[in-house]
Write a protein that binds this DNA or RNA. Structure first.
Lengths: 247, 247
DNA sequence: TAACAGAGTTTCATGTAGTGAAACTAGCTT
DNA sequence: AAGCTAGTTTCACTACATGAAACTCTGTTA
């Protein structure tokens, strides 16, 4: 299948280089080249360009490459005042205080979900959720919410994608999504990572479009299936209230 | 002067497109093309590539382009635990509480300074400082600190750059920097923006290298020249304490 | 309802400019 | 001194980015 490309290869590669730094630590040139399968000299030129524009910088001590301050400049403008991740924060904290578990907010971005906001449980044993993390759409309570309540056609597109796990029975999964629509919320128990469980409900804006999934997650010994269903009404109610906050 | 280029043009252009979004709001394709002087079709291809990698996204309602969530993913990893902007925050808040003015932290990035952290004054009339902002190195108290205490050679390079304002007498400016080194701090009074004033002191790490400039800023009627010099010892002391926190 | 305008998208011939092999440098280890 | 690793620079080749122009939409004007 000859997919028509209307993108710029050099830029794609440069962005791949940049995304290497999503994992946090610093990289040497050769490490990066090996990781994305490009020649040293190519990566060198790309890094020089990224450095020139301030997107990467070299650590003074280690000589390795790390993220530059232009990223900070951009991210400062990412959270505008009308951004859900900002305006919903107080409500998320209320829910956290009520249930004493970590509360996260997810949106769908193509075939993945992204955690755009999180408030941590204050308990000693807790799930630690990092903002900005990208996770698969095939597992986890909020994945199922993001697919179940998505606009028509989204399910099909996402599940048809090459990235979708082949072993997953699409028909059974679709049935499960229909059940979630009926129930109004989804749960997951040790689905994505062992020892963790979550409940999730959709947030709709005033025009009835789902904009995010609100999720409560914690250790599976505390968030038992029973306990999760008990929590569900509170989460749905919070999600509803959040929806009314949005424009 | 034939500057040897070892950068990739297509990538440079793509990053310029991305940096358009540093100013916050959304842009149409043609707007961007006009702004950076590129052809519509070129910008279209670059935006398609950026969109594909999640660096920009299109607003569902307005159809315009805005920053994508990959930026969030990157910025989440910017503030690591050893990051000055994180570990110094408590000290900055203490200083803010003591002086009741906005406290900022600046680092030098090539020919500019970047505000990497800020805590706002709680007073009704206050300077509002946005994190990530890039400002010129030629004006402002912290600019002068960042140049005065920089490693040997930096002054010359920065002031020789094309971006340096031509009208500024380099010799007089250099003299001023020497005075600042002697005093240990710098002030500015309505220098960059009318009605604003600031005091700034350098933060040195354990090996004696300056890593940032700590700055206290506010309205010029409250931060009079006299008042600023009164504040200086407290700021220098805070900067010194911050230095010991760093590795 | 046709004509126009303005924004976004696609096509395609052209030659610039990005590519990767290889050579080179510099710093460490054996 | 030889070997190794990581980063940097050079250069011939042609793949690929480029921009003019054509085209599609959608909304506006006459």
């Amino acid at each position: 299948m000859e997919e028509e490309k209307r993108t710029v290869r050099a830029v794609e590669r440069a962005l791949d280089v940049l995304l290497c730094f999503a994992s946090g630590h610093e990289w040497g040139l050769t490490e990066i080249a090996g990781r994305i399968g490009l020649h040293k000299s190519t990566v060198h030129r790309l890094l020089a360009t990224l450095e020139d524009k301030g997107f990467v910088a070299r650590d003074a001590a280690t000589e390795k490459y790390k993220l530059g301050l232009s990223v900070l400049e951009l991210s400062a403008n990412l959270s505008r005042s009308d951004d859900p991740s900002v305006v919903l924060l107080p409500e998320m904290e209320r829910l956290r205080d009520r249930l004493s578990e970590t509360v996260s907010l997810y949106v769908r971005d193509r075939n993945e979900r992204v955690r755009i906001q999180a408030v941590q449980s204050t308990q000693a044993i807790r799930r630690v959720a990092t903002v900005g993390a990208r996770l698969p759409l095939s597992v986890g309570a909020s994945s199922k919410v993001l697919l179940a309540f998505a606009e028509a056609g989204v399910r099909g597109v996402v599940m048809a994608d090459a990235a979708w796990p082949a072993h997953l029975d699409r028909e059974a999964f679709g049935k499960q999504l229909d059940d979630i629509v009926a129930a109004g919320y989804a749960t997951s128990f040790e689905e994505r990572e062992p020892g963790a469980a979550a409940v999730s409900a959709p947030i709709f804006n005033r025009s009835g479009k789902m904009v995010a999934a609100l999720s409560v997650s914690g250790p599976s010994n505390r968030l038992t299936p029973d306990r999760m269903h008990e929590h569900a009404p509170a989460i749905i109610e919070a999600a509803h209230r959040m929806g009314t906050i949005l424009g």
